[in-house]
Every structure is written in structure tokens, then in C-alpha cells.
């Protein structure tokens, strides 16, 4: 059976909202190949770049934080971002595991 484990990220998001923080919710919506986190994995980010939860094994979180802050600055409701394996430069953001993931960013308001 599928487990019922829940990382309680939404509960935490609600706590952040209650303390008047601006919150972006990031959700893994699609994966291809081997990706570290399964579909439905979540992370929350506030306007200061504080974050909780995860959408990868630490590979793309920095980039997700940056994109989330931009989303709040531009006051856009939502955005889809994709991450692929990065071959050109080892320093570029990418998934070392060889997978691809799509992440959905949305403001909670």
C-alpha cells in the first residue's frame, strides 16, 4: 500500500502565514528518470529566502529559493520551472542524478 507519511510542510506553511510572512509553495509535479524526491514533495519559501522541506536532494533548492523570491517581488501568482541534467558546467544548477523534474511555484495568499 501507499504510505500515509506526510512531512507536514503545509502545516508549517500555515504557521508562517499566520505570522504574516509571504509564502511560496513549491511542489514537485513531474519527474523523469531518477530524481531524488517523488511527485508531491514540497518546500516552502518566504520573502527572506528562509525555506523548509525539499524538492530534490539539495541539488536545485538554491535556485528554487531565488525563483520564489522573484515570484514574490513580481507579485505573480504561479510559475512552472524545469530542471534538467546539467552537462556544460559542473557548477551550474542541475541534477547530478541524471533525472529531470518540474516544479510548480505558487503564492499562498
Amino acid at each position: 500500500m501507499r504510505n500515509s507519511f506526510d512531512e507536514k510542510i503545509l502545516d508549517e506553511a500555515y504557521d508562517w502565514i499566520k505570522t504574516d510572512q509571504k509564502v511560496v509553495l513549491a511542489t514537485v509535479i513531474q519527474t523523469w528518470g531518477s530524481s531524488p524526491r517523488q511527485i508531491g514533495s514540497r518546500m516552502i519559501i518566504n520573502q527572506n529566502g528562509d525555506f523548509s522541506g525539499s524538492v530534490s536532494g539539495g541539488c536545485v533548492e538554491t535556485s528554487v529559493v531565488r525563483e520564489s523570491i522573484n515570484l514574490l517581488k513580481e507579485n505573480k501568482q504561479c510559475k512552472k520551472i524545469e530542471f534538467k541534467v546539467s552537462n556544460e558546467s559542473a557548477w551550474e544548477i542541475g541534477l547530478a542524478c541524471g533525472g529531470e523534474i518540474t516544479i510548480f511555484l505558487e503564492q499562498i495568499n
Partner: peptide
């Protein structure tokens, strides 16, 4: 009881099941 995209749509579904 799965999470994912509905085919040929822009709809994402995340299911919550009763805890054990």
C-alpha cells in the same frame, strides 16, 4: 491514491490518505 498530472490537462492532483 497517487499524486500526478491528469492526462492532457494542466491539472495536478495530490491525494491524502488516512494515517495508519
Amino acid at each position: 491514491k497517487k499524486n500526478g498530472m491528469i492526462k492532457n490537462s494542466e491539472i495536478f492532483v495530490e491525494t491524502y490518505i488516512r494515517p495508519i
